[in-house]
């Protein structure tokens, strides 16, 4: 578990730091994708969520869902290439769940990666997580979660 400037960033997850998204590898080879606590803090309370539909193939760094908060709309980007296999109905009903529990109940989509091993190299995990986000927050002038 890493905490950077008050933002919780579990170090067992895989992060695309630039896109502010995480992936969790599930036992069956699929992944769960969501927004980081830092992304949630920047966005403020999320009021709408539209995921791409199950069955759709998404390239790495392309949008798997669109979220809206305050006055802004933004994409959430795929950590790796894969097929969407599920979206989160509970989040669709209550998008604020993303802010409340970004790493568990607030997940955004589940994906079946095409080739995790080939693409996951750009993702940050484990001991490197804290320093990567500290550098990002520093560059973005972020005060804290």
């Amino acid at each position: 578990m890493a905490t950077v400037r008050g933002c919780n960033l579990p170090d067992d997850l895989y992060y695309n730091v630039e896109n502010n998204v995480w992936a969790r590898r599930e036992a069956d080879g699929t992944i769960t994708v969501g927004m980081t606590a830092y992304a949630c803090s920047l966005a403020g309370e999320i009021v709408a969520y539209t995921p791409k539909k199950a069955g759709k193939s998404i390239d790495q760094n392309k949008s798997v869902a669109t979220v809206e908060s305050g006055k802004w709309v933004g994409p959430v980007k795929a950590p790796v290439t894969g097929e969407i296999i599920a979206s989160n109905d509970a989040v669709a009903a209550k998008p604020g769940t993303i802010n409340g529990d970004p790493y568990n109940a607030g997940w955004l989509v589940r994906m079946k990666p095409v080739d995790w091993n080939a693409e996951a190299g750009v993702l940050v995990t484990g001991a490197a997580v804290a320093a990567a986000f500290e550098a990002k927050m520093n560059g973005e002038g972020f005060g804290g979660c």
Partner: peptide, 10 residues
């Protein structure tokens, strides 16, 4: 803008 705070940007 020198920071990423969307509320402040808008």
């Amino acid at each position: 803008f020198g920071h990423a705070d969307l509320t402040a940007i808008s």
